[in-house]
Design a protein around this nucleic acid. Sequence first.
DNA 1: GTACTACTGGACTGTACGGTCCAGTAGCTA
DNA 2: TAGCTACTGGACCGTACAGTCCAGTAGTAC
Lengths: 221, 221
Amino acid sequence: MPLRNNWTVKSTNGILGAMGLQPTTERGRQTRQRIVAAAAEVVAENGALGASLDEVGARAPASRSQLYHYFNDKADLMRSVADATNEAVLEGQRDLFAGLDSWDGLVRWTDALVELQVQLGGRGGCPIANLLGQLGERDDDIRTVLASGFDRWEASIRDGLTTMINAGELRPDSDADWLAASTLASLQGGLVLTQARRDPRALRRALDGALALIGTHRSTG
Amino acid sequence: MPLRNNWTVKSTNGILGAMGLQPTTERGRQTRQRIVAAAAEVVAENGALGASLDEVGARAPASRSQLYHYFNDKADLMRSVADATNEAVLEGQRDLFAGLDSWDGLVRWTDALVELQVQLGGRGGCPIANLLGQLGERDDDIRTVLASGFDRWEASIRDGLTTMINAGELRPDSDADWLAASTLASLQGGLVLTQARRDPRALRRALDGALALIGTHRSTG
DNA sequence: GTACTACTGGACTGTACGGTCCAGTAGCTA
DNA sequence: TAGCTACTGGACCGTACAGTCCAGTAGTAC
Protein backbone atom coordinates (compact mmCIF):
# COMPACT_ATOMS: atom_id res chain seq x y z
CA MET A 1 0.00 0.00 0.00
CA PRO A 2 2.09 2.88 -1.25
CA LEU A 3 0.94 5.70 0.96
CA ARG A 4 3.02 8.70 0.12
CA ASN A 5 4.94 10.38 2.93
CA ASN A 6 4.61 7.26 4.93
CA TRP A 7 7.32 5.28 3.26
CA THR A 8 9.79 6.36 5.88
CA VAL A 9 7.83 4.57 8.55
CA LYS A 10 9.61 1.37 9.27
CA SER A 11 7.31 -1.42 8.22
CA THR A 12 9.53 -4.41 8.73
CA ASN A 13 10.70 -6.05 11.91
CA GLY A 14 12.82 -4.00 14.26
CA ILE A 15 16.00 -5.93 13.67
CA LEU A 16 18.29 -3.81 11.59
CA GLY A 17 19.04 -6.06 8.69
CA ALA A 18 15.65 -6.61 7.18
CA MET A 19 17.00 -5.24 3.98
CA GLY A 20 16.80 -6.42 0.43
CA LEU A 21 18.88 -9.32 -0.80
CA GLN A 22 22.62 -9.02 -0.60
CA PRO A 23 24.26 -9.74 -3.94
CA THR A 24 26.31 -12.93 -4.14
CA THR A 25 27.98 -12.34 -7.48
CA GLU A 26 30.44 -9.67 -8.45
CA ARG A 27 28.04 -8.28 -11.01
CA GLY A 28 25.30 -8.03 -8.44
CA ARG A 29 27.61 -6.30 -6.01
CA GLN A 30 28.49 -3.72 -8.60
CA THR A 31 24.85 -3.12 -9.48
CA ARG A 32 23.94 -2.62 -5.86
CA GLN A 33 26.86 -0.31 -5.36
CA ARG A 34 25.91 1.71 -8.45
CA ILE A 35 22.40 2.10 -7.10
CA VAL A 36 23.54 3.36 -3.70
CA ALA A 37 26.00 5.79 -5.28
CA ALA A 38 23.35 7.13 -7.64
CA ALA A 39 20.86 7.43 -4.80
CA ALA A 40 23.35 9.35 -2.68
CA GLU A 41 23.90 11.71 -5.58
CA VAL A 42 20.22 12.30 -6.19
CA VAL A 43 19.57 12.76 -2.47
CA ALA A 44 22.35 15.33 -2.27
CA GLU A 45 20.77 17.27 -5.11
CA ASN A 46 17.08 16.94 -4.36
CA GLY A 47 16.82 15.95 -0.75
CA ALA A 48 15.67 12.58 0.48
CA LEU A 49 11.97 13.16 -0.02
CA GLY A 50 12.63 14.81 -3.37
CA ALA A 51 14.73 11.93 -4.63
CA SER A 52 12.66 9.78 -6.97
CA LEU A 53 13.43 6.16 -7.67
CA ASP A 54 13.00 6.81 -11.38
CA GLU A 55 15.81 9.33 -11.20
CA VAL A 56 17.98 6.97 -9.18
CA GLY A 57 17.35 4.18 -11.65
CA ALA A 58 18.11 6.39 -14.61
CA ARG A 59 21.35 7.56 -13.07
CA ALA A 60 22.70 4.22 -11.84
CA PRO A 61 21.61 3.00 -14.38
CA ALA A 62 19.40 0.27 -13.03
CA SER A 63 15.88 -0.87 -13.70
CA ARG A 64 12.98 -0.76 -11.32
CA SER A 65 13.33 -4.42 -10.43
CA GLN A 66 17.01 -4.08 -9.69
CA LEU A 67 16.14 -1.47 -7.09
CA TYR A 68 13.54 -3.70 -5.50
CA HIS A 69 15.77 -6.73 -5.82
CA TYR A 70 18.41 -5.20 -3.55
CA PHE A 71 16.21 -3.02 -1.34
CA ASN A 72 12.87 -3.60 0.31
CA ASP A 73 11.60 -0.12 -0.33
CA LYS A 74 12.76 3.47 -0.56
CA ALA A 75 13.36 3.72 3.19
CA ASP A 76 15.63 0.70 3.00
CA LEU A 77 17.59 2.34 0.19
CA MET A 78 17.85 5.53 2.21
CA ARG A 79 19.36 3.60 5.10
CA SER A 80 22.08 2.43 2.77
CA VAL A 81 22.53 5.99 1.54
CA ALA A 82 22.95 7.11 5.15
CA ASP A 83 25.62 4.48 5.66
CA ALA A 84 27.40 5.50 2.48
CA THR A 85 27.20 9.15 3.51
CA ASN A 86 28.90 8.40 6.82
CA GLU A 87 31.67 6.61 5.01
CA ALA A 88 32.14 9.35 2.44
CA VAL A 89 32.34 12.13 5.01
CA LEU A 90 34.68 10.30 7.38
CA GLU A 91 36.83 8.82 4.64
CA GLY A 92 37.26 12.30 3.22
CA GLN A 93 38.91 13.37 6.48
CA ARG A 94 40.92 10.23 7.12
CA ASP A 95 44.32 11.74 6.45
CA LEU A 96 43.45 14.85 8.42
CA PHE A 97 42.27 12.78 11.37
CA ALA A 98 45.67 11.12 11.43
CA GLY A 99 47.29 14.52 11.98
CA LEU A 100 44.91 15.60 14.71
CA ASP A 101 47.42 14.60 17.35
CA SER A 102 49.20 17.93 17.41
CA TRP A 103 48.22 21.57 17.59
CA ASP A 104 49.41 22.17 14.06
CA GLY A 105 47.47 19.16 12.83
CA LEU A 106 44.39 20.52 14.55
CA VAL A 107 44.81 23.83 12.79
CA ARG A 108 45.41 22.10 9.45
CA TRP A 109 42.23 20.11 9.93
CA THR A 110 40.17 23.26 10.47
CA ASP A 111 41.86 24.94 7.52
CA ALA A 112 40.96 22.04 5.25
CA LEU A 113 37.32 22.09 6.38
CA VAL A 114 37.06 25.81 5.74
CA GLU A 115 38.84 25.51 2.41
CA LEU A 116 36.38 22.86 1.32
CA GLN A 117 33.50 25.20 2.11
CA VAL A 118 35.20 27.96 0.17
CA GLN A 119 35.40 25.64 -2.83
CA LEU A 120 31.76 24.70 -2.42
CA GLY A 121 30.72 28.32 -2.10
CA GLY A 122 29.29 27.58 1.32
CA ARG A 123 26.72 25.35 -0.31
CA GLY A 124 25.41 22.05 0.97
CA GLY A 125 26.29 22.01 4.63
CA CYS A 126 27.15 18.68 6.23
CA PRO A 127 25.68 15.71 4.32
CA ILE A 128 25.14 13.76 7.51
CA ALA A 129 23.32 16.62 9.20
CA ASN A 130 21.24 17.17 6.06
CA LEU A 131 20.04 13.59 6.04
CA LEU A 132 19.37 13.82 9.76
CA GLY A 133 17.18 16.87 9.31
CA GLN A 134 15.27 15.28 6.47
CA LEU A 135 14.78 11.77 7.78
CA GLY A 136 15.97 11.67 11.37
CA GLU A 137 12.60 12.38 12.91
CA ARG A 138 10.79 9.92 10.68
CA ASP A 139 13.01 6.87 10.63
CA ASP A 140 14.73 5.82 13.80
CA ASP A 141 17.06 3.38 12.06
CA ILE A 142 18.41 6.12 9.85
CA ARG A 143 18.76 8.43 12.84
CA THR A 144 20.80 5.77 14.62
CA VAL A 145 23.03 5.22 11.60
CA LEU A 146 23.71 8.95 11.31
CA ALA A 147 24.31 9.25 15.04
CA SER A 148 26.97 6.58 14.73
CA GLY A 149 28.59 8.68 12.02
CA PHE A 150 28.78 11.60 14.42
CA ASP A 151 30.08 9.26 17.13
CA ARG A 152 32.93 8.12 14.93
CA TRP A 153 33.67 11.71 13.95
CA GLU A 154 33.77 12.78 17.58
CA ALA A 155 35.91 9.77 18.47
CA SER A 156 38.49 10.72 15.87
CA ILE A 157 38.75 14.19 17.36
CA ARG A 158 38.87 12.80 20.87
CA ASP A 159 41.63 10.36 19.97
CA GLY A 160 43.71 13.21 18.63
CA LEU A 161 43.17 15.30 21.73
CA THR A 162 43.97 12.35 23.97
CA THR A 163 47.22 11.85 22.12
CA MET A 164 48.00 15.53 22.66
CA ILE A 165 47.28 15.17 26.36
CA ASN A 166 49.51 12.10 26.63
CA ALA A 167 52.22 13.87 24.70
CA GLY A 168 52.06 16.77 27.12
CA GLU A 169 50.87 19.22 24.49
CA LEU A 170 47.65 19.69 26.42
CA ARG A 171 47.45 19.80 30.18
CA PRO A 172 46.75 16.43 31.80
CA ASP A 173 43.51 17.60 33.39
CA SER A 174 42.02 18.50 30.00
CA ASP A 175 38.68 16.82 29.32
CA ALA A 176 39.13 15.26 25.90
CA ASP A 177 35.54 13.98 25.80
CA TRP A 178 34.09 17.39 26.39
CA LEU A 179 36.48 19.22 24.09
CA ALA A 180 35.84 16.78 21.26
CA ALA A 181 32.07 17.03 21.64
CA SER A 182 32.25 20.77 21.82
CA THR A 183 34.54 20.95 18.78
CA LEU A 184 32.27 18.78 16.65
CA ALA A 185 29.33 20.96 17.70
CA SER A 186 31.21 24.09 16.65
CA LEU A 187 31.96 22.47 13.34
CA GLN A 188 28.37 21.43 12.74
CA GLY A 189 26.97 24.77 13.79
CA GLY A 190 29.53 26.57 11.70
CA LEU A 191 28.41 24.55 8.71
CA VAL A 192 24.78 25.42 9.33
CA LEU A 193 25.56 29.14 9.50
CA THR A 194 27.83 28.90 6.48
CA GLN A 195 25.08 27.21 4.52
CA ALA A 196 22.56 29.86 5.55
CA ARG A 197 24.82 32.76 4.66
CA ARG A 198 26.77 31.19 1.83
CA ASP A 199 29.77 32.47 3.70
CA PRO A 200 32.53 30.09 4.86
CA ARG A 201 33.71 32.73 7.33
CA ALA A 202 30.94 31.56 9.63
CA LEU A 203 32.62 28.16 9.80
CA ARG A 204 36.01 29.82 10.23
CA ARG A 205 34.82 31.79 13.23
CA ALA A 206 33.11 28.78 14.77
CA LEU A 207 36.23 26.65 14.41
CA ASP A 208 38.38 29.48 15.71
CA GLY A 209 36.18 29.38 18.78
CA ALA A 210 36.78 25.67 19.16
CA LEU A 211 40.51 26.13 18.66
CA ALA A 212 40.60 28.95 21.20
CA LEU A 213 38.86 26.77 23.75
CA ILE A 214 41.30 23.91 23.19
CA GLY A 215 44.08 26.50 23.24
CA THR A 216 43.26 27.40 26.82
CA HIS A 217 44.32 23.85 27.72
CA ARG A 218 47.74 23.98 26.07
CA SER A 219 50.66 23.36 28.31
CA THR A 220 52.68 26.47 28.99
CA GLY A 221 56.27 26.03 27.87
CA MET B 1 2.80 23.47 -15.26
CA PRO B 2 2.98 21.63 -11.96
CA LEU B 3 6.30 19.83 -12.23
CA ARG B 4 6.91 18.04 -9.00
CA ASN B 5 10.11 18.77 -7.11
CA ASN B 6 10.46 21.92 -9.10
CA TRP B 7 7.98 23.97 -7.19
CA THR B 8 10.69 25.37 -5.01
CA VAL B 9 12.31 27.00 -7.99
CA LYS B 10 11.45 30.66 -7.87
CA SER B 11 9.30 31.41 -10.85
CA THR B 12 8.36 34.99 -10.15
CA ASN B 13 10.43 38.11 -10.38
CA GLY B 14 13.37 38.49 -8.08
CA ILE B 15 11.84 41.17 -5.94
CA LEU B 16 10.86 39.62 -2.66
CA GLY B 17 7.22 40.44 -2.41
CA ALA B 18 5.79 38.69 -5.40
CA MET B 19 3.53 36.89 -3.02
CA GLY B 20 -0.16 36.25 -3.04
CA LEU B 21 -2.64 38.96 -2.14
CA GLN B 22 -2.40 40.53 1.26
CA PRO B 23 -5.73 40.44 3.07
CA THR B 24 -7.41 43.81 3.62
CA THR B 25 -10.15 42.72 5.96
CA GLU B 26 -9.87 41.31 9.44
CA ARG B 27 -11.47 38.08 8.35
CA GLY B 28 -8.98 37.69 5.55
CA ARG B 29 -6.10 38.39 7.85
CA GLN B 30 -7.26 35.69 10.22
CA THR B 31 -7.67 33.18 7.40
CA ARG B 32 -4.20 33.90 6.08
CA GLN B 33 -2.76 33.63 9.56
CA ARG B 34 -4.56 30.32 10.15
CA ILE B 35 -3.09 28.95 6.94
CA VAL B 36 0.48 29.93 7.84
CA ALA B 37 0.13 28.50 11.33
CA ALA B 38 -1.28 25.25 10.00
CA ALA B 39 1.44 25.06 7.37
CA ALA B 40 4.14 25.60 9.96
CA GLU B 41 2.63 22.79 12.01
CA VAL B 42 2.49 20.37 9.11
CA VAL B 43 6.00 21.29 8.02
CA ALA B 44 7.29 20.66 11.53
CA GLU B 45 5.70 17.23 11.49
CA ASN B 46 6.33 16.08 7.93
CA GLY B 47 9.07 18.26 6.58
CA ALA B 48 8.64 20.86 3.90
CA LEU B 49 8.56 18.47 0.97
CA GLY B 50 6.34 16.11 2.89
CA ALA B 51 3.82 18.78 3.80
CA SER B 52 0.84 18.53 1.49
CA LEU B 53 -1.50 21.42 0.78
CA ASP B 54 -4.45 19.13 1.38
CA GLU B 55 -3.20 18.54 4.90
CA VAL B 56 -2.57 22.25 5.45
CA GLY B 57 -6.03 23.09 4.19
CA ALA B 58 -7.64 20.46 6.35
CA ARG B 59 -5.86 21.69 9.43
CA ALA B 60 -6.32 25.43 8.99
CA PRO B 61 -9.11 24.83 7.99
CA ALA B 62 -9.14 26.52 4.64
CA SER B 63 -10.13 25.53 1.15
CA ARG B 64 -7.90 25.12 -1.82
CA SER B 65 -8.80 28.52 -3.21
CA GLN B 66 -8.09 30.25 0.05
CA LEU B 67 -4.55 28.89 -0.11
CA TYR B 68 -4.10 30.13 -3.65
CA HIS B 69 -5.82 33.39 -2.88
CA TYR B 70 -3.18 34.36 -0.34
CA PHE B 71 -0.17 32.56 -1.80
CA ASN B 72 1.11 32.18 -5.32
CA ASP B 73 2.17 28.60 -4.86
CA LYS B 74 3.58 26.23 -2.30
CA ALA B 75 6.99 27.89 -2.41
CA ASP B 76 5.38 31.20 -1.57
CA LEU B 77 3.60 29.63 1.38
CA MET B 78 6.86 28.10 2.54
CA ARG B 79 8.49 31.52 2.51
CA SER B 80 5.82 32.70 4.89
CA VAL B 81 6.37 29.62 7.01
CA ALA B 82 10.07 30.47 7.15
CA ASP B 83 9.22 33.97 8.30
CA ALA B 84 6.86 32.66 10.93
CA THR B 85 9.46 30.16 12.10
CA ASN B 86 12.00 32.91 12.62
CA GLU B 87 9.49 34.85 14.67
CA ALA B 88 8.48 31.85 16.75
CA VAL B 89 12.04 30.87 17.59
CA LEU B 90 13.22 34.38 18.41
CA GLU B 91 10.07 35.38 20.23
CA GLY B 92 10.44 32.27 22.37
CA GLN B 93 13.76 33.57 23.63
CA ARG B 94 12.83 37.23 23.96
CA ASP B 95 12.85 37.35 27.74
CA LEU B 96 16.06 35.35 27.88
CA PHE B 97 17.73 37.67 25.38
CA ALA B 98 16.94 40.58 27.69
CA GLY B 99 18.95 38.91 30.42
CA LEU B 100 21.93 38.12 28.23
CA ASP B 101 23.75 41.17 29.51
CA SER B 102 25.32 39.43 32.48
CA TRP B 103 27.18 36.21 33.10
CA ASP B 104 24.30 34.80 35.12
CA GLY B 105 21.87 35.73 32.36
CA LEU B 106 24.08 33.95 29.87
CA VAL B 107 24.06 30.82 32.00
CA ARG B 108 20.29 31.06 32.47
CA TRP B 109 19.85 31.32 28.69
CA THR B 110 21.85 28.14 28.10
CA ASP B 111 20.00 26.38 30.91
CA ALA B 112 16.67 27.25 29.33
CA LEU B 113 17.75 26.00 25.91
CA VAL B 114 18.92 22.71 27.38
CA GLU B 115 15.80 22.38 29.49
CA LEU B 116 13.66 22.83 26.40
CA GLN B 117 15.52 20.02 24.69
CA VAL B 118 15.04 17.83 27.74
CA GLN B 119 11.31 18.47 27.52
CA LEU B 120 11.32 17.66 23.82
CA GLY B 121 13.29 14.50 24.37
CA GLY B 122 16.02 15.87 22.12
CA ARG B 123 13.61 15.71 19.22
CA GLY B 124 13.24 18.21 16.41
CA GLY B 125 16.43 20.20 16.47
CA CYS B 126 16.28 23.86 15.50
CA PRO B 127 13.25 24.68 13.34
CA ILE B 128 15.19 27.31 11.41
CA ALA B 129 18.06 24.95 10.65
CA ASN B 130 15.58 22.24 9.68
CA LEU B 131 13.93 24.45 7.10
CA LEU B 132 17.33 25.52 5.88
CA GLY B 133 18.41 21.94 5.30
CA GLN B 134 15.19 21.11 3.52
CA LEU B 135 14.75 24.16 1.34
CA GLY B 136 17.85 26.31 1.63
CA GLU B 137 19.61 24.83 -1.36
CA ARG B 138 16.56 24.97 -3.54
CA ASP B 139 15.04 28.37 -2.86
CA ASP B 140 17.31 31.30 -2.39
CA ASP B 141 14.60 33.56 -1.00
CA ILE B 142 13.88 31.11 1.77
CA ARG B 143 17.58 30.72 2.46
CA THR B 144 17.87 34.49 2.81
CA VAL B 145 14.90 34.68 5.14
CA LEU B 146 16.36 31.97 7.37
CA ALA B 147 19.78 33.60 7.29
CA SER B 148 18.20 36.79 8.57
CA GLY B 149 16.74 34.77 11.42
CA PHE B 150 20.22 33.58 12.34
CA ASP B 151 21.48 37.15 11.97
CA ARG B 152 18.94 38.45 14.46
CA TRP B 153 19.72 35.57 16.80
CA GLU B 154 23.42 36.31 16.63
CA ALA B 155 22.78 40.03 17.07
CA SER B 156 20.86 39.40 20.29
CA ILE B 157 23.77 37.44 21.69
CA ARG B 158 26.24 40.05 20.51
CA ASP B 159 24.23 42.86 22.09
CA GLY B 160 24.32 41.06 25.39
CA LEU B 161 28.05 40.48 25.19
CA THR B 162 28.65 44.10 24.20
CA THR B 163 26.70 45.22 27.23
CA MET B 164 28.85 42.95 29.37
CA ILE B 165 31.98 44.46 27.86
CA ASN B 166 30.74 47.99 28.46
CA ALA B 167 29.79 47.08 32.00
CA GLY B 168 33.29 45.76 32.58
CA GLU B 169 32.13 42.19 33.11
CA LEU B 170 34.13 41.13 30.06
CA ARG B 171 37.51 42.54 29.18
CA PRO B 172 37.38 45.52 26.82
CA ASP B 173 39.40 43.78 24.13
CA SER B 174 36.87 40.94 23.88
CA ASP B 175 35.58 40.41 20.35
CA ALA B 176 31.80 40.39 20.76
CA ASP B 177 31.21 39.66 17.07
CA TRP B 178 33.35 36.60 17.11
CA LEU B 179 32.12 35.31 20.46
CA ALA B 180 28.49 35.72 19.42
CA ALA B 181 29.03 33.94 16.10
CA SER B 182 30.93 31.18 17.81
CA THR B 183 28.28 30.81 20.51
CA LEU B 184 25.44 30.55 18.00
CA ALA B 185 27.44 27.92 16.13
CA SER B 186 27.94 25.92 19.31
CA LEU B 187 24.23 26.14 19.95
CA GLN B 188 23.29 25.03 16.45
CA GLY B 189 25.82 22.23 16.42
CA GLY B 190 24.74 21.13 19.86
CA LEU B 191 21.18 20.92 18.61
CA VAL B 192 22.23 18.81 15.63
CA LEU B 193 24.08 16.35 17.85
CA THR B 194 21.24 16.33 20.36
CA GLN B 195 18.78 15.53 17.60
CA ALA B 196 20.99 12.74 16.27
CA ARG B 197 21.49 11.14 19.67
CA ARG B 198 18.22 12.07 21.30
CA ASP B 199 20.39 13.28 24.13
CA PRO B 200 20.25 16.89 25.35
CA ARG B 201 23.63 16.43 27.01
CA ALA B 202 25.19 17.03 23.60
CA LEU B 203 23.73 20.52 23.64
CA ARG B 204 24.80 20.98 27.24
CA ARG B 205 28.40 20.18 26.43
CA ALA B 206 28.40 22.38 23.34
CA LEU B 207 27.02 25.33 25.27
CA ASP B 208 29.44 24.67 28.12
CA GLY B 209 32.16 25.02 25.52
CA ALA B 210 30.75 28.36 24.41
CA LEU B 211 30.42 29.51 28.01
CA ALA B 212 33.98 28.44 28.77
CA LEU B 213 35.28 30.40 25.80
CA ILE B 214 33.38 33.51 26.87
CA GLY B 215 34.56 32.84 30.40
CA THR B 216 38.16 33.27 29.34
CA HIS B 217 37.29 36.90 28.62
CA ARG B 218 35.81 37.68 32.01
CA SER B 219 37.42 40.47 33.90
CA THR B 220 39.40 39.29 36.87
CA GLY B 221 38.15 40.80 40.08
C1' DG C 1 23.84 -30.50 -22.63
C1' DT C 2 20.09 -29.79 -18.05
C1' DA C 3 18.62 -27.59 -14.01
C1' DC C 4 18.82 -24.14 -10.92
C1' DT C 5 19.54 -19.68 -9.01
C1' DA C 6 21.00 -14.85 -9.38
C1' DC C 7 20.00 -11.21 -11.64
C1' DT C 8 17.74 -7.96 -15.14
C1' DG C 9 14.14 -5.40 -17.99
C1' DG C 10 10.40 -2.52 -18.30
C1' DA C 11 5.39 -2.18 -18.65
C1' DC C 12 1.87 -1.38 -15.42
C1' DT C 13 -1.14 0.23 -11.22
C1' DG C 14 -3.20 3.08 -7.80
C1' DT C 15 -2.90 7.28 -5.72
C1' DA C 16 -1.49 11.61 -3.60
C1' DC C 17 0.15 15.54 -5.21
C1' DG C 18 0.37 20.81 -6.78
C1' DG C 19 -2.20 23.68 -9.29
C1' DT C 20 -6.61 25.47 -11.96
C1' DC C 21 -11.23 26.80 -12.53
C1' DC C 22 -15.55 28.86 -11.82
C1' DA C 23 -19.42 29.61 -9.27
C1' DG C 24 -20.49 31.31 -5.47
C1' DT C 25 -21.13 34.31 -0.64
C1' DA C 26 -19.94 37.87 2.69
C1' DG C 27 -19.13 42.69 3.63
C1' DC C 28 -18.63 47.39 2.54
C1' DT C 29 -20.01 51.99 0.22
C1' DA C 30 -23.51 54.79 -1.41
C1' DT D 1 -31.62 48.99 -2.74
C1' DA D 2 -27.55 48.18 -6.08
C1' DG D 3 -22.88 47.49 -7.31
C1' DC D 4 -18.47 46.35 -6.24
C1' DT D 5 -14.63 43.94 -4.22
C1' DA D 6 -12.78 40.66 -0.92
C1' DC D 7 -13.12 36.40 0.09
C1' DT D 8 -14.70 31.34 0.07
C1' DG D 9 -15.93 26.49 -1.59
C1' DG D 10 -14.78 22.41 -3.65
C1' DA D 11 -14.81 19.75 -7.97
C1' DC D 12 -11.50 18.88 -11.22
C1' DC D 13 -6.96 18.00 -14.05
C1' DG D 14 -2.49 16.25 -15.40
C1' DT D 15 1.35 14.09 -13.64
C1' DA D 16 5.09 12.12 -10.96
C1' DC D 17 5.42 9.02 -7.65
C1' DA D 18 6.37 4.34 -4.90
C1' DG D 19 5.56 -0.05 -5.44
C1' DT D 20 4.09 -4.64 -8.27
C1' DC D 21 4.36 -8.07 -11.67
C1' DC D 22 6.05 -11.33 -14.77
C1' DA D 23 8.78 -12.61 -18.40
C1' DG D 24 13.00 -12.77 -19.40
C1' DT D 25 18.67 -13.48 -19.52
C1' DA D 26 23.08 -14.47 -17.54
C1' DG D 27 25.97 -17.36 -14.80
C1' DT D 28 27.13 -21.75 -12.44
C1' DA D 29 27.23 -26.62 -10.99
C1' DC D 30 26.95 -31.12 -12.62
